[in-house]
Design a protein around this nucleic acid. Structure first.
Lengths: 244, 244
DNA sequence: CCCTTCCCTGTACGCCGTACGGACCGACCA
DNA sequence: TGGTCGGTCCGTACGGCGTACAGGGAAGGG
């Protein structure tokens, strides 16, 4: 062996990185369905099985791909002073990363592992939440609840996008779209079940080409969540002050 | 044709329903990976391609399966008077449905369509949010933000569960688990990057067998979100009162 | 009686992930 | 210097997937 262990692993990491970035590029461009090991190998100009020299399985590859996306979620230091601004900035960046790489949301990680960039992201977030002076459990709850909201928003936004895509460019009014090839829905609408949806869909008819209401956006829910957290923090501080 | 169109479609719907329930049962028992059209046909005692007589594609099948889960999210009438209690009840039921059928979260819908039970679920939720007397846009934002939180929570809880499963029964302390086969993480920990995570993982060592902190739970985040919404509603009412 | 219309079936195609055995090649040790 | 050995790359092959397609068979309508 000519190289020291460090050099060797560095060389290996290099190859790994090339494979992963090529895979990310492919998934970004053509979706995760187009990402097969054969196709990826073709793209890299190597034989089908060659990537397996550097990556244990497609599952691990997807895990590594997700970690490169996690790197994009990292906020450049220095972080904003205000905890609320900092948390919001991270949430925004996370959302942007998911929007740039929607395939992250198309397949759930099968055997997820803690990878470096994901850990960096968590470290950064914990650092901010710590400023609130809450108990460790509450701090974690704050962090996770924001994470959950962001993931949920992005997941639903992704589903919405797929729905729009699947409809194609031809316009269809909302009621027709809802009931079109689904007799169950049509029957329910006729029977007067779903009155609110029927009314809303009827109103959307004129304003909106498709039966899908415009997205109400990422910010309001995040604001409410942060409001609730802030109020909870204020309450905790009051109690602490009162007990002294 | 011997049967009237209605009878015919009813008969067809019956067969469809059998297929879908069998598919749900299989996915519940062995996960979505075990659900192949061949396996499903075997389970039903028919030839491989027979299910395709009643279901256009595996995609549509998954869509129908998801809709049976949506049925479980429906709250029995009468709904609670208090809007907050009602929204919380729906959120709880939704979470329970996802926990009972985690495969819902394992694969994103490819070409989602509005199905009857999903629409019923939405109708029920809108009915509650309407009581708040907010604008249509704000109402939708309230509804969707709660939905997003629930989906996000369940998705992360699912990932957590997979992580625990993949670790197997043998206990491993947190630090070792974090850095185990991943040299990048080990290097970062050694280099003093990730100080907070290192400290937390070190503390978890004794209390917790795995490197995964216990779930902080569904309720706190939901409460914060509802708190924020409630404060926003109160503010809106104040403004309305003041302008009169 | 035949004919249409469904429902069902078996076969077959082109993908997929990946196990495996062998070829090459540079680096170390005798 | 020659042998060996670890690491990289390759080709082939296997089992499984979703599903297109062409045919069979029963059942009701003319």
């Amino acid at each position: 062996m000519s190289v020291t262990p460090t050099e060797q692993s560095a060389q290996k990491a290099c190859k790994r990185a090339e494979i992963v970035t090529a895979a990310v590029r492919l998934a970004d461009a053509e979706g995760v369905d187009a990402l097969s090991m054969r196709r990826l190998a073709d793209e890299l100009g190597v034989a089908t099985m060659t990537p397996y020299t550097h990556v244990a399985s497609k599952d691990e590859l997807l895990d590594l791909m997700r970690d490169t996306v996690a790197a994009e979620m990292l906020l450049p230091e220095p972080l904003p002073e205000d905890w609320r601004a900092a948390l919001r900035a991270i949430a925004d960046r996370t959302r942007a990363a998911f929007e740039a790489h929607p395939w992250c949301l198309d397949t759930a990680p099968r055997r997820p592992r803690a990878r470096i960039n994901r850990l960096r992201h968590v470290e950064q977030s914990i650092g901010i939440v710590r400023r609130l002076g809450l108990s460790p459990e509450t701090s974690r709850a704050v962090l996770l609840s924001i994470d959950d909201y962001v993931i949920g928003y992005c997941t639903r936004a992704r589903a919405r996008q797929r729905m729009l895509d699947s409809l194609g460019p031809e316009g269809k009014d909302a009621l027709r779209h809802l009931s079109d090839p689904d007799p169950e829905v049509a029957a329910a609408l006729d029977a007067g079940e779903l009155p609110i949806i029927k009314k809303i869909a009827g109103q959307l008819d004129r304003q909106h080409p498709f039966g899908i209401p415009p997205d109400s956006g990422f910010e309001p829910g995040l604001d409410w969540l942060l409001d609730g957290i802030e109020a909870s923090v204020a309450r905790a501080e009051d109690e602490k002050a009162a007990s002294h």
